[in-house]
Design a protein around this nucleic acid. Structure first.
Length: 987
RNA sequence: GUCGGAGUGGCGGAAUAGGCAGACGCGCCAGCUUGAGGGGCUGGUGCCCGCAAGGGCGUGGGGGUUCAAGUCCCCCCUCCGACACCA
């Protein structure tokens, strides 16, 4: 941090009322107190306890930041970028006549808070609440215009009561696929009782025999339909954190997002949310919302819709058995020359052969793999077991680093290609994933890169069934003779083309292009019952339970059948019990024991007596807690009605704030009008929140299908990272830079690079440091001036002085630095100054509207520079200009805005003052200077009347002596005149 | 590898709808103020040639469309981000 600009203030050599850090700090504290005392930023609800001052004529606007996770380190200047952006916009919109709801809450449950508490040996509630207090004070110091009555915290039992209530809504629902929406589970039970609906399961494909089921079986059947359900399935188990994790919390390297611990797949009984029921709608409704295209793309990719077909390959030895595969290229079915199952596919054990078929190559038997003999394993059963061990021992990192060499073993089984009738061998290989499609593929080596590699490695036939294009052939040094002979191909042809070699007695694809071949084969498959067109998705159900202490308890108990039951609403909240040891049970990497949630230590709490309709009985509580995402899935709704004890949110209040945006041109069907946050939440928080919102919408608790109408991603602040010779970051604030530019820390040389600001890179700058050196308004202005809000930007302490000087110069033009008295008079502004003013008003308003705060600041600076020249050192500023200037600046720098407004003689706050309006007549000059080009090069500029016509301008241009000189002897071929813009003379 | 985003002075960045490239700020240079430093004020500052007048070049590179291209089209390079054996 550089020295304060007015370091000499203490020497008394500068004017008493010069705008510097001391003056800024004094007036900022004063105005923050006044705003708080006056409740300046309170946004009235249409009804209920927060309705005082409601004005039905004011259009509404709901503006939100992604709420902070209060860490022990406090805020740094990178965190506040988005907060300042929304605050400036909210302030502008208030002045433009809107009733703006802007509040902030705290996302305070979760792993980091718990880790911090464990490290410091304090209860997470103590550390979390202290962190929240720090954040509150830092944000207050920034001059945020938040409605303080609406600040919520996810750890408040009065808040998580409703998180639990929403959980119960989801638990009490099922997805009616025909209706395409969630419905109360009671309606399902009623339909089952009435016999108008049946539940189909893999065991009962024709429907559960409901009437014959006993109560427990019926409950099991119904529980399996709920939108949140218990499932015993492979999950991401992270021994280092002592908990399971959602897919979204595991990195591509197979490690935990938090803490970077290894993650293993383990079958555990866990709660899952049926987000996959909303696949289609989560994709389709992206078209309704005004979000950055890149975030929509990320969500689409994550949900991963792909169209294709499911095809059944019968097993040769037992045609009753069949392998279902999913493919996006059913048109290549005739080229399927082998099959691959994921190693853990349940069918493997059923179809594996007892002995190797004659002449099975040793490579197929696993020769060369760790654990196999020189000729491979001795039987298919051995090979399957051996390969599973081998694949399991390969970490995800290894699988990546080893350039994806294809490995696998044969199962000794043979399936029948339904199109050709030919037998095809069945393999297992870890390049086929159990988690996608059906966990099995038909391999078409001629037209799939991975299958091609596998086929080459295992000596399998490669049969072309799509003719490669000319370009592809020549690009690979091939010609027409190679079209149907893949032996010379260097790689698979994966593009579209004409089908070849694809005909049997019933269907002929030959000559069709890929799209037609796909539909042709699919129709045939459906006719003969060998398959069907279908859609596959990458998205999995959301693993929702954690073996940690610091989270919302589930409002669930278990009875003697070990079946879950909802805690009645009247019993909410289920308060997180106090326990002495809240640390997770961290396991060794190879410890297979069942995780023990810390809540199991709450011996007095873990069992409870309740009357759930069968008289008082003892139940066992669910001991897992909810993931961090639960509280952040719906907090925007609680801002609307934070004190409501009867409902999540009052319906009238919800409709008022969430129904159709009244400002944006985008199709306005509702949701938060503007939601600003980092792009790192593109799939996690934003996908989960959309899912919960849609469930609440289906159940009638909210009135819009999407939660966030407009999303905006602010950029990240990066700062110089200094590293020592070992590559470890050293505290950036302690690095010394020599005159020659070399940098050292404690005498040792250090390197420099740019990195995201934060504690881990030791390059954080706190807002408090900047307040002390320049004041909060300067920090706000600098954050906004650095560049476009959505761009990443480097923190450069040296540049802060520029915006500080702007405030100082504005102040000096309006206030006498010696006396503190206003320097304005009531004489009208000169014509030129007034035109500049009105152009600035129009430009700044447009910039605020478009969140272009950096150019708004540039325009205000230009206006002030003009003002400085026009009034001179001893002159006075025309009041109309002075007041407009203050109003233009107030959204960006609210404290100095209030102070100047008061010094200009006003008693009320500037916050609700109408934004100045530009006079359209003053936006055009009478004379404009336009460039004259000769042959596209500017040779001179001429002044013409703004409304001069083309002929007049052309005559003036051609008469100009510099133009005449530039043209010389050349003949004029053409003259292009754009009135008011330019002239171009073509020779 | 696939998808997405971005390359403009020494630096951060401007540039409605294809129409004056470099707004505004930092830094730097000069001058004024000051005992000095800091601070403040005024002016200058894309690069090259030139005392100047003036000229040439210039938005990652190469081609194209156009009277006119940072902006549109094609090819290539570099950087950043996301996903990553998804059948």
């Amino acid at each position: 941090m550089s020295e304060p600009v007015d370091a000499a203030a203490t020497t008394g050599e500068i004017p008493r009322f010069r705008y510097g850090a001391a003056l800024a700090n004094e007036l900022e504290a004063r105005w923050q107190d006044r705003w708080e005392a006056d409740g300046t930023y309170r946004a009235p609800n249409p009804s209920g306890p927060l309705s005082e001052g409601f004005d039905a004529d004011r259009p509404k606007l709901f503006i939100m930041d992604m709420f902070p996770y209060p860490s022990g380190d406090g805020l740094h200047v990178g965190h506040v970028l988005g907060y300042v952006g929304t605050d400036v916009y909210a302030r502008y919109k208030r002045m433009a006549g809107y009733s703006v709801l802007h509040a902030v809450g705290y996302d305070a449950f979760g792993l980091p808070a718990e880790q911090f508490a464990i490290q410091t040996g304090q209860h997470p509630r103590v550390t979390t609440e202290r962190n929240i207090a720090t954040y509150r004070s830092q944000l207050r110091g920034l001059g945020m215009g938040h409605d303080d009555r609406r600040s919520i915290s996810t750890i408040d039992p009065q808040y998580y009561r409703w998180t639990q209530w929403i959980f119960l809504q989801i638990f009490g629902s099922w997805y009616d696929a025909e209706a395409g929406r969630a419905r109360p589970i009671a309606e399902l039970v009623a339909e089952l009782d009435a016999g108008t609906r049946t539940i189909t399961t893999p065991e009962h494909p024709d429907g559960e025999p409901w009437a014959d089921l006993d109560d427990v079986s019926r409950r099991r059947a119904v529980d399996a339909q709920r939108l949140v359900y218990l499932d015993e399935a492979p999950v991401n188990w992270c021994p280092g954190l002592g908990t399971v994790l959602a897919n979204e919390e595991v990195t591509a390297e197979g490690r935990s997002e938090r803490g970077n611990f290894p993650v293993y797949k383990r079958a555990l009984r866990q709660w899952k949310m049926r987000i996959t029921a909303y696949n289609e709608r989560l994709v389709a409704d992206l078209d309704l919302i005004d979000w950055p295209e890149r975030v929509k793309t990320l969500q689409r990719n994550w949900i991963g819709r792909s169209e294709g077909a499911r095809i059944r390959f019968p097993i040769a030895s037992d045609p009753a058995l069949g392998i279902d595969v999913f493919t996006t290229r059913p048109d290549t079915l005739f080229g399927a020359t082998y099959m691959v199952l994921a190693p853990e596919h349940p069918l493997v054990d059923e179809l594996v052969a007892a002995t190797w078929p004659p002449e099975t190559p040793t490579a197929w038997r696993g020769a060369g793999l760790a654990g196999a003999g020189a000729d491979g394993w001795t039987s298919p059963v051995e090979a399957v077991a051996g390969y599973r061990r081998y694949a399991g021992s390969r970490s995800d990192v290894e699988r990546q680093v080893e350039t994806r060499t294809k490995t696998g073993v044969a199962t000794g089984a043979t399936a029948i290609n339904p199109a050709t009738g030919e037998p095809v061998p069945v393999f297992i290989a870890d390049y086929v994933l159990m988690g996608y499609g059906t966990g099995a593929i038909m391999a078409v080596p001629a037209h799939d890169t991975r299958d091609f590699e596998f086929a080459r490695a295992f000596g399998l036939p490669i049969t072309p069934v799509v003719a490669p294009t000319e370009g592809w052939l020549t690009g690979h040094g091939l010609d027409d003779s190679d079209v149907d002979d893949a032996t010379s191909w260097p790689e698979a042809f994966t593009g579209s083309g004409q089908a070849i070699g694809s005909a049997n007695d019933e269907v002929v694809l030959d000559g069709l292009d890929t799209d037609d071949a796909k539909s042709g084969i699919t129709t045939w498959l459906e006719q003969v019952g060998a398959g069907e067109g279908t859609t596959s998705w990458k998205l999995r159900d959301w693993l929702f339970s954690r073996q940690r202490y610091w989270g919302e308890p589930f409002p669930i108990v278990f009875d003697e059948h070990d079946l879950p039951l909802a805690v009645p609403e009247s019993e909410l909240p289920v308060v997180l019990p106090e326990i002495d040891d809240y640390a997770p049970v961290v396991k060794g990497d190879d410890d297979d024991s069942v995780p023990e949630p810390p809540l199991g230590r709450a011996t007095a709490w873990r069992e409870v007596e309740m009357d759930l309709g069968e008289g008082p009985r003892t139940y066992r509580r669910e001991l897992n807690t909810m993931p961090n995402w639960a509280g952040s899935c719906w907090y925007y709704l609680r801002y609307l009605d934070p004190t409501n004890e009867d409902a999540l949110v009052d319906p009238e209040v919800e409709r008022h704030w969430m129904q159709g945006s009244t400002t944006e041109a985008a199709p306005a069907f509702g949701g938060v009008d503007l939601y600003v946050g980092g792009v790192e939440h593109a799939v996690l928080h934003l996908l989960y929140a959309r899912f919960w919102h849609k469930v609440l919408f289906d159940l009638g608790h909210v009135s819009t299908p999407e939660p966030f109408q407009r999303l905006y991603n602010q950029g990240t602040v990066v700062a110089t990272v200094f590293r020592d010779e070992r590559g470890f970051p050293v505290p950036a604030g302690e690095v010394v830079e020599a005159d020659d530019g070399t940098t050292t820390w404690q005498g040792e040389p250090v390197t420099r690079e740019l990195g995201r600001m934060g504690k881990s890179l030791k390059n954080g700058v706190t807002p408090d440091e900047v307040y002390a050196a320049y004041g909060a308004d300067t920090l706000r202005l600098y954050e906004m001036a650095m560049g476009p809000l959505d761009a990443d930007r480097p923190w450069n302490a040296q540049d802060i002085v520029g915006v500080h000087r702007l405030l100082q110069r504005v102040w000096r033009n309006l206030v006498d630095e010696d006396t503190g008295q206003p320097r304005v008079d009531d004489a009208p502004a000169g014509d030129d100054l007034r035109r500049v003013l009105h152009r600035t008003i129009a430009g700044v308003a447009a910039d605020y509207e478009g969140l272009r705060f950096n150019t708004a600041i540039a325009k205000i600076t230009e206006l002030n520079n003009t003002l400085t020249k026009s009034v001179g050192a001893d002159g006075r500023t025309p009041r109309e200009v002075a007041e407009a200037m203050v109003l233009l600046l107030a959204p960006l720098a609210p404290h100095i805005g209030e102070e100047l407004w008061a010094r200009l003689g006003h008693t009320g706050t500037v916050v609700w003052e109408p934004f100045p309006e530009a006079d359209p007549d003053l936006l055009v000059d009478e004379l404009v200077e336009i460039p004259v080009q000769v042959g596209g090069k500017v040779r001179t500029r001429i002044k013409v009347d703004a409304d001069a016509d083309a002929a007049t301008i052309e005559a003036l241009a051609l008469a100009d002596e510099k133009v005449v000189a530039a043209i010389g002897d050349a003949a004029i071929k053409r003259v292009v005149v754009v009135p008011g813009r330019l002239v171009n003379i073509v020779t």
